[in-house]
Each structure stands twice: as structure tokens, then as C-alpha cells.
Amino acid sequence: MAVMTLRIPDDLDLAIRAGATAAGLSLNAYIVRAARRQAVLDAAQQLAELGLGELLCGEGDTL
């Protein structure tokens, strides 16, 4: 498992902590979930740009 140092702007810190608490997740799990979701969306966007977006219909977040 990789270890990263993440610098968060002060104005975003409280919102992230509140989101993690509301979701019942640790701060680490909350940030990992957000990063994973974005990575999946980025990959789906790349597939859509290749004309494969129709294959993704109904599979989660819209592109």
C-alpha cells in the first residue's frame, strides 16, 4: 500500500472532515473513496471519448 502526503486548503478541511463524519467513515477512508470515484469517472470519460460510452449506460454516475 502506498503512503501519500496530502495538503488540503484550510477552507476545504472542515468540509472534508464533516463529510467523513456524516458518512461514518474515517478521514482516510472518505478521501480514498472520493479518489476512487474520481478515477473511475475519469476512466469512463476516456472510454466515452473513444465512442464506448453506450456500453456504460446504467453503470453508475453519468458522464
Rank of each mutant, 00 (worst) to 15 (best):
L12A: 14
Y30V: 01
Q46C: 01
T21M: 09
L50K: 12
V3R: 10
V40Q: 13
I8C: 04
D10G: 07
L6D: 02
Q38M: 14
R17T: 07
G24N: 04
G51E: 03
C57G: 01
G51K: 04
A29D: 15
A34W: 03
E59A: 15
A23H: 10
G51A: 03
Q45P: 00
A44C: 15
L63H: 08
G51L: 04
G24C: 04
A23R: 09
L52T: 00
A34F: 02
L25S: 09
L27S: 01
V40Y: 12
A18M: 05
G19E: 03
A44S: 12
A44K: 15
A29K: 10
G60K: 09
L41F: 11
G51P: 08
D10S: 11
M1N: 08
A35E: 01
G19C: 01
V3G: 05
A44V: 13
A23W: 08
L41H: 07
A35M: 10
T21P: 00
D13W: 10
I31M: 11
L6W: 11
L47Y: 09
Y30A: 06
L52W: 06
A20N: 02
I8M: 06
A43W: 12
Q46P: 00
L63R: 05
L12V: 03
E54Q: 11
L52H: 07
Q45D: 13
D11H: 12
C57M: 05
G58Q: 06
L25R: 11
M4I: 13
L52R: 09
A18N: 14
A39N: 08
G24K: 05
A20L: 02
E49I: 00
R33C: 08
D42F: 06
M1F: 05
I31P: 02
N28Q: 13
T21C: 07
D10M: 05
Y30Q: 07
R33L: 13
R17E: 14
L27R: 12
L55I: 04
E49P: 01
D61Y: 00
D10E: 14
A34Q: 08
Q38W: 13
A15Q: 04
D10A: 15
D61T: 00
A23Y: 08
I8Q: 03
M1H: 08
T21D: 13
D11L: 06
E59L: 15
R36Q: 14
A35G: 08
D42Q: 13
L12F: 13
L50F: 08
A48W: 06
I16C: 01
A39T: 06
G19M: 02
L47C: 11
R37T: 10
D13Y: 07
D10C: 01
A22H: 11
T62A: 13
I31Q: 03
L25W: 10
Q45T: 11
G58R: 02
C57T: 08
D11Q: 07
G19Y: 02
A20P: 03
A44P: 05
C57A: 14
Q45E: 13
R17K: 15
L55N: 08
A35H: 01
N28R: 09
L14V: 09
I8L: 13
L63G: 09
D11I: 01
A35R: 01
L55W: 12
A43I: 02
A22P: 04
L50C: 04
A22Y: 06
A23D: 12
A34C: 14
L6Y: 02
R37P: 00
R33T: 11
L56Y: 07
D10R: 03
